[in-house]
């Protein structure tokens, strides 16, 4: 292989890459928050009494989990305008990410909820807690603790999936990479650097989740 790598050629584009990185981080943070919220609501509906809601959420989860993210994205960005829902690239991208994470986290959190011993529910009800109070105070905290590692991995997978948003011209990290390689044709160098940035982001995210875990569940600290 007589090829010399030219990583120095990327330096003029540093600010572009940093901008893209920040957008990826912003999209991920918003998605993590909204997606987990949607997942909690979805899991509550799955565990609840309401028949119609239960099935509707079930269909939503199966539809999203069995189709590729890029097709969901194209459907939202290109397809929805024809029934009158017009979204710009950012909104479509964010919506697709939230809907995607929402489906996966519904399934993950539901698994945690199902592990709640029946006696705890009965005890809470006997103590006079309402259905909603029981869910928020008795069922949810231990359920979240149990499935926390799975939820962490899923949020990281969604962050990595956000690379696809470049295809509808959302100017995140991969979009920056595509733009730079279209200018200087150093595709391998650019994508290598950006891939390592994603790796860094994934590692940092895992640490951040660990830190949140430390403060959110103080009862687990003593076990170390």
């Amino acid at each position: 292989m007589d090829y010399t790598f030219q990583f120095a050629e990327l330096l003029p584009y540093t600010s572009l890459i940093v901008d893209g990185l920040l957008w990826t981080v912003a999209l991920t943070l918003i998605t993590t928050f909204l997606g987990c919220l949607l997942g909690t609501l979805g899991a509550a509906a799955r565990a609840g009494q309401h028949k119609f809601l239960k099935h509707a959420v079930g269909i939503y989860v199966e539809l999203i989990r069995n189709t590729p993210f890029i097709v969901q994205l194209f459907f939202i960005f290109f397809g929805l305008p024809s029934i009158g829902i017009k979204l710009n690239a950012w909104e479509a991208g964010l919506l697709a990410m939230v809907i995607n994470l929402g489906a996966y986290s519904t399934e993950i959190i539901r698994a945690g909820i199902e592990a709640t011993p029946k006696g705890q529910l009965e005890a809470a009800r006997t103590l006079g807690l309402s259905r909603v109070q029981t869910f928020i105070r008795v069922v949810l905290p231990p359920a979240l603790q149990k499935i926390y590692p799975a939820l962490t991995s899923q949020c990281i997978i969604v962050m990595l999936g956000s690379a696809v948003l470049s295809q509808i011209s959302v100017q995140e990290l991969t979009f920056a990479a595509n733009f730079i390689q279209s200018r200087n044709f150093l595709s391998f160098e650019v994508y290598l650097v950006v891939a390592l940035l994603y790796l860094l982001l994934a590692i940092l995210m895992r640490q951040l989740f660990k830190a949140v875990h430390y403060y959110a569940f103080p009862n687990l600290r003593a076990r170390k």
């Binding site: 292989m1 990595l160 690379a163 595709s187 391998f188 994508y191 891939a195 994603y198 994934a202 590692i203």
Partner: peptide
Amino acid sequence: ELFQGTPLLMQLFLVFFGISLFG
């Protein structure tokens, strides 16, 4: 760690453009 920590899209690009570096 490398393959689970980077987007599949990046892996595709790196393989696609990486192999062509060898001519």
